[in-house]
Design a protein around this nucleic acid. Structure first.
Lengths: 203, 203, 203, 203
DNA sequence: AATGAATGAGCGTTCATTCAT
DNA sequence: TATGAATGAACGCTCATTCAT
């Protein structure tokens, strides 16, 4: 009995698996539309077309659904990222960086509204923070690995730190330029970001 | 009566002004220690040494206190920033950037726990988001202004976009390196960040 | 802050004291009529003519009201008992025992239905059990004290143990003969009980 | 179909009888360990190694299992009592009474924790109360019968009432001295009780 | 102006029981 | 027959806000 499974039901029948999925989908939709705190478990159950009790049969509480959704999204995104980076080799420096940015932007493009909630909860809930940090670290290693492959073309030496800095910069730029109603348009921001990173990385 | 003043009391006497201040201080302390959602108005009143009713005599609701505290902090910090940047001129490129970073890091150094709450609410509350964005824009203009002064030494042309990108990078790096229990130490991160920005900005 | 006061309001105004009393009265009525488990806090509040929140302003939870009512009743009853026993002196042996029985029967006569609930909860809740035991012990000491006063007429030597045994016998007889729809009528039971105790105690 | 059989399955095959027994055993274990209200039907089914639905195939509801267990225990205990009393004859008065007490104490010795639950529910549930009363009456008749056999040695005349009073006294003493953390030790209590009953009964 | 008592909608959660497979 | 998924009313409790004094 894993400690994070508590007393939740582990579906063995096909119907149970479907129900669990319906709840996850519904929660994802509502968290994205209304935010975590403004969504209650009864709503999630209704949206999923199941009874309140079924929610608690499959999940310990509201937060555990949130974390599970986040985990699921992250897995998909790490794979996407890896895929996106594969195509980076064999281009010039700027192309490489832009591809990287696209891959990273894809991360949030997946489900921007849910990511927004993650950002909120990351600062107010220790569990979400821990999960976010571990995912962030995973991304950082992915980027560091990619840098490693083109080491001889780089001017930076401390690849881990460089990866971390790049990642942070991208995250915040993408987040902020998404939410802000901006007089500075997105293209100018992205091209400056790409320029900054390229100058930083390459000889 | 301005619409955002609701039915709150506007203190003109010394006693009223003090009471208002005590409430703001108490709220600031509690929001920083326990977070916005885990702090209730009764607690704030008790911590301030006033009655629950008095809280609502001076403030429309819990959120309005939060916003007001945030505004107050931002004003102080914009001034600090301006002061911090004044000393930037007359050094070499790297020194300039590091001074800038120190000035920005100072922003969060002021009241890091409250900033954490701002980060959380920024993503979950439209009003906090709006305020954050306008403050961010103010900071951006400040930075853009500083860049303007040393235009001839810069390789970047689009100063507004550059300022925005720099600002975002700094914010996230500072935030994340604060919360993460890191295998990459802070100094390496900061020096990489400074290097990145300097290469980006200067010829 | 006493540990059993939790975060409850301690009424300082007259209105508050009244409200607290109304809640206690309502709870007593409902516990007696429907039992502890079949009474919920909303009902108590409604019966008391106050809001749910007020209930929780004055009491930590449902059980704490129960315990407080029980405590209050016990205090009154210990006083009644003491009074009832005062008149015991100066009669013959049988008269003394019957007076004692009347005094003890009076204990449950006060609020028999509530006592019934106490009996139920005494076996299912540790806190109620502890309170019951301490009250029982108090009663035992009272009885032992009364025996002490007429020591020379008694054949029993171990007054504490004797008091305990008498008390238990009386309690259960009174309880059971109350609830049972009996073919043995109450008078026969009481007179046998009195006979038993008198033979036991006196030379 | 008897009205109290509801729609429950009446097992005739060996397998069904075993399943029914497993449920009764599991329920007995859990009621004893955690109490009736803190044990839920899912737990009982799991402990018994059957599905939730099977529980309701064999029993009308949770309470009916409780009643059935209680009935079963009582039957065994009545037999034990009868056996225990058989050896009472041919001793002196005190010996007789002590044998009786041992036989009665044996009643609770069987499954003291379950008895505790019975005591709790006896006061809060009419059905349990009725069952308890009828069992109590059975015990009373048993005791009265035993008294009948030694009538010529007794000073009491109303054997039914005497049996009732004795029984009550024993029950409560045994119960209370079990739960109370006592400054009066058990031996003193028991010997006083035996003394009281012997003086009461015998010439 | 100030107090603190009162409000009550709303929340997360449980579990005895039923039902589809 | 046996399974275990599904149900949903009901519960205890919180707290931002209002109101009587």
């Amino acid at each position: 009995m894993a400690p994070d499974q508590h007393k939740t039901r582990k579906p063995v029948q096909k119907r149970g698996i479907e129900t669990r999925g319906k709840i996850l989908d519904a929660a994802m939709r509502l968290f994205s539309k209304k935010g975590f705190h403004s969504t209650n478990t009864k709503e999630i159950a209704r949206e999923a077309g199941v009874a309140t009790g079924s929610f608690y049969a499959y999940f310990k509480d509201k937060k555990s659904v949130f974390l599970e959704i986040y985990k699921g999204i992250s897995h998909k995104q790490l794979k996407d990222m890896a895929g996106g980076m594969a195509g980076v080799e064999g281009q010039d420096d700027t192309g490489r960086v832009e591809a990287l940015l696209r891959a990273l932007a894809g991360e949030h493009g997946f489900s921007p509204n849910f990511q927004r909630e993650v950002s909120a909860m990351r600062y107010s809930d220790p569990d979400v923070e821990a999960l976010h940090n571990s995912i962030h670290e995973g991304l950082g290693q992915e980027v560091a690995l990619m840098l490693e492959k083109q080491k001889e073309r780089l001017r930076v030496k401390d690849l881990d730190a460089a990866a971390f800095v790049i990642l942070c910069a991208c995250e915040e730029v993408i987040h902020t330029s998404r939410t802000i109603s901006h007089r500075i348009d997105r293209d100018r921001v992205i091209s400056n970001l790409a320029d900054m990173i390229a100058r930083f990385l390459y000889k």
